[in-house]
């Protein structure tokens, strides 16, 4: 089939795969990409539960505004769409309850 905008994914060269963990599960991504991008690629979309109704939530605006992609990294609440993936980081989901 003629494609005017062909699939170029094979032409994209990325940094080596590195591992990190999300809630203890090992996930791979490429060093330097956003944490949210690595999580989305891995199919790990459900990042947190909404505090009011425990509705599952994940990355939405991807530009640092909506605060839906919050995760916890080194004790700090961070926007995963604005965090650069580093090898070996341990990321946990944000829990609002007493078991925090």
């Amino acid at each position: 089939m003629i494609r005017l905008a062909p699939d170029q994914s094979a032409q994209i060269r990325r940094t080596e795969k590195v591992e990190f963990t999300f809630d203890g599960t090992a996930i791979w991504g490429h060093a330097g990409e956003s944490l949210a991008a690595a999580l989305i690629r891995s199919g790990r979309l459900h990042l947190r539960d909404a505090p009011e109704d425990t509705d599952p939530r994940g990355a939405f605006c991807l530009m640092g505004l909506c605060q839906e992609c919050l995760v916890v990294l080194e004790g700090q609440t961070v926007e995963s769409c604005r965090i650069e993936l580093q090898p070996g980081i341990d990321v946990t989901s944000l829990r609002y309850g007493a078991d925090g």
Partner: peptide, 15 residues
């Protein structure tokens, strides 16, 4: 629209 896997249309372009 709050389900994981729904992205803003403009937001997706960031990805």
């Amino acid at each position: 629209w709050t389900k994981p896997g729904v992205f803003g249309l403009a937001g997706a372009t960031a990805l």
